[in-house]
Structure formats: structure tokens, C-alpha cells
Simulated assay, not measured.
Amino acid sequence: MARIPASVAAVRTAVRRVMPSEGLVLVACSGGADSLALAAAARFVGRGRPVGLVTVDHGLQEGSDRRAADVAAWARAFGFDPVVAAPVRVDGRSGGPEAAARTARYEALSSAAAGHGAGAVLLGHTRDDQAETVLLALARGAGPRGLAGMPERRGIFLRPLLDVARADTRKACAALGLVPWDDPHNVDPSYARARVRSDAMPALVAALGPDVVANLARSAPMIAADNEALDALASAAIGDATSLDISEIYGLATAIRRRVLHLWARRLGAPGSALSHRHVEALDALVVDWHGQGPVHLPGGILAARVRGVLVRVAG
């Protein structure tokens, strides 16, 4: 019996570790090496049970509809069921092109899962993607929430390959005779992630050695675990309060107090995607650096002020 190539075994083992034991599972597949290797592994691990595939056509490149059709045809021939080719519209969405495409993609994947009753959607992000995410978060000064990177599980979405190198997904495709599609956006210097991938990460590897990729990626779940513990402490401290008594939060450790303020701002209705460290620091100044300053403007048109020793929402 021929020995299974190490790259194929690595991908299959990663998928087997997180694959739900029952119910329909969908694989998100662009046709790139990462998601193609993931799809093949999921089909192998899920033999005898329903495994489907979704490919999203963002409509951002000429011929993207043909690419989606080709991926869908391959999936049907490979035994996936159901197979969904989902066109989405990216133009007119808020945020930059990367954020808009990501939002559209997750909406399409969520819709496909709901429409077919799938309990999980597998995503093909690798260890290298995680390292790039952490590096980008560092560059933005995103703080612990950004440095936590991509979670292995969030709702119905699972990322089995966060401990698998990108090089191994390419090797797995080659070993299985699969021909991946190379997304030109991955090398387009107008995208920050593409610049990190082509320039910044290779420079770091050259300066610090190849372990830097795994070490950056490994940092993410450790920081995520710390975040979870700190968030739990903050949640316990705030309870169900809609206003915050300064005397009750002033003495909290800075990390806990600022998480209390972040949670409170979210509770007031501030969208998390727009709530930055500057907003939280301004709220914190109302607590620990009070000198009569006016209200803090939070995302969503929300005003928060200190009134007689209590943080409250005020009318504009």
C-alpha cells in the first residue's frame, strides 16, 4: 500500500480533528490551493456522510463566473452534494475592497448554510494566513482583540488548517493531482495583505528565521485565551448595568476597566467594528482623568458623559 504523502496526511488530520460527527458540512472553496486541499480532505474524512461545497463569485475579475463554474463542476465530479456557486455584489458596501468582499462572502456562506441546513462551514485559512493577520494587527496597533487573530471556531465557521503551513496545502494539491487557481489579488500590491505576503513576511523570515511564521500564528490563540478570561472578568464587573458608577470601576485594573468600558459602549449600541481604542481611552479619561471634559462621541451617534459621578448616555 502506497504511503500517504505527509502534506496530504497533515491536511486530513487537521480536518478530522474538527469535523463534526454528524450533519451536513459545507466547504468554502475558491479553487485556490488552501481551500482545494481542504475540500479534498473534507471529502475524504467525510466519506459516507453529506459534505457539500460553496464557491463564491465576487465578480471582481473578468472571468470570475467561469472560475466559479469550474470549481462547481469539479466539486460535483468529486462527489460533493450540495454544490453552490454563489454570486455576490461587492460594490457599494462600506469599508475598503477587502472588507467589502469579506462581508459579502460571509453573507453568502451563511445563506448557503441556512438554506441547506448545514451545521458547519469549513474555511481554508492556514498558519501563514494567521501569521499575516497578527502582523497586520500589530501594524494597525489593533491591541489584544486584533492580535487574537482568527479563531478556529466562530459560530458555524470552522478553520481546521490554522496549524497547517500554506506550503503543505500546495504540496497536498500536487500529490493529489489537483490544479489550484492562483488569485491575482494575492499578489496585487494595492492590497495590504498581498504586500505583507510578498514583501514583509519574507523579510521577517530572512531576518529572524523560518520559525517566525509559526511563532506569530501561535501567539494568536494564546492572546485569544487571555482575552476570553479578561472579558469574563469585565462582564462580571459590569453585570447588566446601563450606567456606570465611577466609584465602582475606578479601582479596577486598567485592562479590566477598559474592557468594562468597551462592553458598556457596545451595550449602548456602538458597533464593535467601528469602536476603536481611542473611543475607549476617551471613556477611560472620564473615569481616571476627570477635569470637567465634555461628552465622548462614540460610533453610531452615541454620546456618553460623566454626570454626578456616573457614566451615562446623554442626548445630543
Rank of each mutant, 00 (worst) to 15 (best):
P82Q: 12
A28F: 05
A148G: 15
P97A: 12
R257Y: 08
R49Y: 13
H185P: 01
R145D: 11
T13C: 05
V288W: 10
A86E: 11
H277E: 12
L53H: 12
L263Q: 14
A101S: 15
R159S: 13
V84P: 07
I156W: 07
H279I: 06
R153C: 00
V83R: 08
M201Q: 08
I223C: 10
A241H: 03
L162E: 02
G272L: 10
A104Y: 14
E107P: 03
W74F: 15
P299N: 13
A265W: 06
R16K: 11
S273I: 03
A101L: 01
D199R: 15
P299D: 08
A99N: 04
V45L: 10
A315M: 04
S111L: 12
R218Y: 00
D129C: 11
A174K: 02
F80M: 08
V56L: 10
R154Y: 05
V54S: 02
A315I: 04
A75D: 10
I238N: 03
V287W: 09
A255P: 00
A139L: 11
R166I: 01
R257F: 06
H297V: 14
A200H: 06
A255K: 05
L230D: 12
W264V: 08
A224H: 01
D211M: 09
M1V: 04
G119R: 11
A118S: 04
